[in-house]
Write a protein that binds this DNA or RNA. Sequence first.
DNA 1: GATGAATGAGTTTTCATTCAT
DNA 2: TATGAATGAAAACTCATTCAT
Lengths: 210, 210, 210, 210
Amino acid sequence: MPIMRVSAHNTKKENELKTYTDKQMEIISSSIELIAEKGIQQLTIKNLSQKINKAEGAIYRHFNSKIEILLGILHLFRQNKDMVLTNLQLQNLSAPEKLQNLLSKRISYFAASPAIAAVIFSEEIFQNDKILADEVFQILEDSQKIMTAIIARGQADHQIREDIPAEQLTLLITGALRLLVTKWRLANFSFDLSAEGQKLRESVTTIITK
Amino acid sequence: MPIMRVSAHNTKKENELKTYTDKQMEIISSSIELIAEKGIQQLTIKNLSQKINKAEGAIYRHFNSKIEILLGILHLFRQNKDMVLTNLQLQNLSAPEKLQNLLSKRISYFAASPAIAAVIFSEEIFQNDKILADEVFQILEDSQKIMTAIIARGQADHQIREDIPAEQLTLLITGALRLLVTKWRLANFSFDLSAEGQKLRESVTTIITK
Amino acid sequence: MPIMRVSAHNTKKENELKTYTDKQMEIISSSIELIAEKGIQQLTIKNLSQKINKAEGAIYRHFNSKIEILLGILHLFRQNKDMVLTNLQLQNLSAPEKLQNLLSKRISYFAASPAIAAVIFSEEIFQNDKILADEVFQILEDSQKIMTAIIARGQADHQIREDIPAEQLTLLITGALRLLVTKWRLANFSFDLSAEGQKLRESVTTIITK
Amino acid sequence: MPIMRVSAHNTKKENELKTYTDKQMEIISSSIELIAEKGIQQLTIKNLSQKINKAEGAIYRHFNSKIEILLGILHLFRQNKDMVLTNLQLQNLSAPEKLQNLLSKRISYFAASPAIAAVIFSEEIFQNDKILADEVFQILEDSQKIMTAIIARGQADHQIREDIPAEQLTLLITGALRLLVTKWRLANFSFDLSAEGQKLRESVTTIITK
DNA sequence: GATGAATGAGTTTTCATTCAT
DNA sequence: TATGAATGAAAACTCATTCAT
């Protein structure tokens, strides 16, 4: 019962604008499915090759290493996140509405792609691969910074309570979201994430507006 | 980058009252140190045997499998948790004070034993060992139930705001605590967990009392 | 038909006084045999494990990597070389006699352990492992320096012709020795290395004394 | 650290008069460059295809196997050698002059095409491919026979010392040349091969004429 | 001619666990 | 109790070669 192994590698810093070929996308998708079905520990080259009905070596024509596949998954998440945020900026919403929107989108995304959460929230697993760990950490930090900015703006506009620092509110909201998704995964997706997410959103609204 | 490997095993459901011999405790302590120093991926029988200056085989005199060692770590955490709660019950405190106390104790505990957090929060890693996963899940559930009970009691006594369900407040508080500790670990313990924990406790107080 | 593969590793600079356990010596010996029989390309962990009738993993109890086994072989050669030289210093011989002695010993050694030559003379193979390449290069350089010193001393004492620089004589003698041994290996040891070596020694004597 | 891999194949005994198409010559040249740049271990079909900006499969349009490419390199060397010798025969030179000429040409050739030396002197690497090993061995033998013939002729003409058998002088001269070139490669071409070659030629002249 | 995807057999290494002593 | 050697199953990755298009 091995859990996850990756080898030394020379992957260069992922280009933000990186695009993937169809084959690469197929491999990334299969990886996501595999993680969703059996957990990230079962994302082995062997299992992956079986899933795509190819020999193990075939994978290496499309990715130089397993790390790059994982980076691909993270990249996909980041792209979605950036898109959500861009759309959010374009809309003329109040801070509480933006927060609602953000939470809603994030929950929908995890509900649709539970495997992504398994990767995004598995900081421990990537601990000894610097590039992956950095990427995961960066995604976490970015998310928090953006939420903090929205909240701070809302506080400046007196739309959000000012007796708690924006960072603290972000910590509470993000932490709750993560824990909710984690519990959902641990419970084998046996409850309705969207419904619970809706409850969380209501609580958040109540809290931030007193 | 192997992460963690455990094999098939026949461990029986852990006895709640299980006690450990001195040798067993030494092995558990060394495991915790090892995890704290190098991450859970480096908790291998080989590394562990080097740490306790014994041959690898010797460990199997005291534990039937690596899983049992991990269960030992979880058991230790559970014992501490139960003790904290028992003490909490004995004191005649208001619900907000109890919450403060609980958070304070938990933060101190993680600050003193960061390895415990690495184990407790690594649900993903144990995903393919049923017993371990159950244990971790149980600890999480128990913690939440207790906190929810305290909060519900506080709401009944009008010490805690009643416009948000107790479960939601628990989710927010527990989630924030977990995220804070996770960030602390990812940041290589480079910030003062106690100080940040203090801030969180203040925010929690503000939130629950409006 | 793979030829030779070694992986990234962290071998520390080999200790000059390093000693080997019995098991390690057995593995080193089997490696030498394997190289002698099938060439250095066939020195794979699999072939080696078959030769010692153990599982592949067993080898890693005694050596951290394949590189260390190869270093072990080189170390053995170095030890022999050093011993020969020490003995040589203790004897009160003329420079030409010392050279004769040196050549004689070297040839006997290669005749007895042809695999050693396969390793010592395989500079190309180790080209992309720095530690191995350094070691092989060092052995080559050391040998030449010592021979040059003996010759230079002989020239100062008018025992050896002075119209050719010592380095040049060393190049000619060492080169001839290496080529002789290489041809012997390529010819599948089908001629008598000692006899040919004796001829070479006579030629060398004639040349250096005019 | 893979070194070189070649597979089973059915190459027929190379035709002495074999000619190569332009495409084939391009592939051979690129192979030589690749070896010169990164060592013979890096001569893989993948690396080669990148160098010639063609797909991997394209190479197999022009050569049936990697072995044939290597044979092509050897063939090129042989052609040059034969040409040098033919020219040498046409000139009316003394034996020592011929030797000088031969050495000079060989050194210039290696200085211009260091990769050739990497191939010619890598007997060990080809050990488990009979055809390649034979070819390399044949080149070595041919060279020595020719040099021995020149020397023997010189001895008969009293231009070269007669107290050492021609074969021995050949062994000394060829060995020195090989060792010099090998050291030059190991030293990353950091010294002037031509200059050192000139010194060697002088030493050789001194030695053979007493 | 050329492509590029795929294969299969190979490589080194890791590690929880067992067992004779 | 303890040792240390051994195992076996797994892991990631490499590469010469094939082949449908």
